[in-house]
Simulated scan of single mutants.
Amino acid sequence: MKLKNKLALTGAATMAALFLGLNANAARMDMVDVSNNNGYMSTAEYVSMRNEFGVKALTVKISEGSTYKDPYAASNIANGQAAGLYVNGYHFAHYKTKDQAIAEADFAGQTAKAVGLPVGAVLATDVESQEANNQSKATNDCNNADFMQEIQKFGYRSDIYTSGSWANNKMTIKDKTGWIAAYPYVVSGKNWYSTNHAWQWSSTAKFRISYGGFDVSQLNSNYYTAGQKSTVKPTNKGAVKANNRKANKSNYQPSTNAKWVMETKTYTLKTAVKLHTGASTSSNAITILPAGTTIKTDRAIIQGGYRWVRQPRFNGYGYLATGPASNTLEYVKSGATHTYYTVKSGDSWWTIAQRNGLSMTTLASQNGKSIYTTIYPGQRLVVR
């Protein structure tokens, strides 16, 4: 999820997070999940999602760790219910032991009750933290089971949210369970994770009257709509069909005819970046340019899922991937001045992010990393 707790999935394909399902079996926008990062969401916005995009369910961030309560949870739940959506919740987990898992479940359950999450709703554990990454599969399985068993004592149904790369790798996700995130280039008619409850296929979906990008999922069972009564149906089927078709497209279209464009800029690197011999991640690395390096570029191109820039050098050119083709944010910012934090023993992405008023995802991305990247004492991270 995002902190905006959502997964920063690794690898070239997942980093680009592009979805080009232009076929008749394009993924549906059955469920939206929201957190404090989406800001205040009105009933009107949820009604628009329902009527124009076919959204059936809403999953609201409730809590994180053992202390954080999402300040927008109560309004999201109330306004989502008023719009006739099935409403669920999720807790962003940091537990490493059985006792911590139970303590976080108690905290999440009590918080969910206080903000009005209806009994019978799903209260999923969002397992994507650095803590979980450092545990064995067996330990994660035991901790997840303990959390979910405890959650049921509050009258909520349980489930696990994680990435496709973690499912059955970092933890066990059995058939007929699980909410899995995976953002492919092309679906080609495939219904991903069809044996699981839900498949989150985009983290950048747009809605007509709402600002920013949203996480959207296709429901492959009725698990996230069961146990709550709603007879509300989308009122504009034509709009639903057209908007879902649009949502399954991207501005990025792979092409062998991509052209370089003039772009004369001076950049200061926010993080260490590989300088390649060509505009491809498979091309050889000339060197790794450290954070703080100033470079001048003369061309830019969108190719292979990335936005590339070209750096003139004394013996030719070097090429840098500045970010996903679908993302206007770059690893580099022109003339940037930064504040750095030196990692100490015991630090995690979460503790550093909380200390500096950032989300883990934002902290990691502005350092050119994912929340799954191991950080070490003495390492410097950009925090401003």
Rank of each mutant, 00 (worst) to 15 (best):
Ile295Cys: 11
Asp298Ala: 04
Pro324Arg: 06
Lys265Ser: 14
Val240Phe: 04
Ala239Thr: 11
Lys274Leu: 01
Val240Ser: 04
Tyr252Trp: 14
Lys237Met: 12
Ala325Glu: 07
Phe314Asp: 13
Ser282Pro: 00
Leu329Ala: 11
Tyr252Glu: 05
Lys265Phe: 13
Tyr317Val: 05
Gly278Pro: 00
Lys237Leu: 15
Leu329Lys: 14
Ser283Phe: 03
Gly318Phe: 04
Thr287Glu: 13
Ala321Pro: 02
Pro254Ser: 08
Lys241Phe: 11
Leu275Asp: 04
Asn284Ala: 13
Ala258Leu: 06
Gln311Pro: 02
Thr266Tyr: 05
Lys265Arg: 15
Lys246Ser: 07
Gln311Met: 15
Lys274Tyr: 07
Ser282Glu: 05
Leu289Met: 00
Arg310Phe: 02
Asn248Pro: 03
Leu329Gly: 07
Leu289His: 00
Asn284Ser: 10
Lys270Glu: 15
Lys237Asn: 10
Tyr331Ile: 10
Lys296Leu: 08
Ser326His: 11
Ile288Gln: 03
Ile301Phe: 10
Ser250Met: 01
Ser283Lys: 03
Ser283Asp: 06
Asn251Trp: 09
Ala242Met: 08
Asn284Val: 02
Asn315Asp: 12
Ala291Glu: 12
Lys241Ala: 13
Val240Trp: 02
Ser282Tyr: 03
Gly304Met: 05
Lys270Asn: 15
Ile302Trp: 12
Ala300Gln: 13
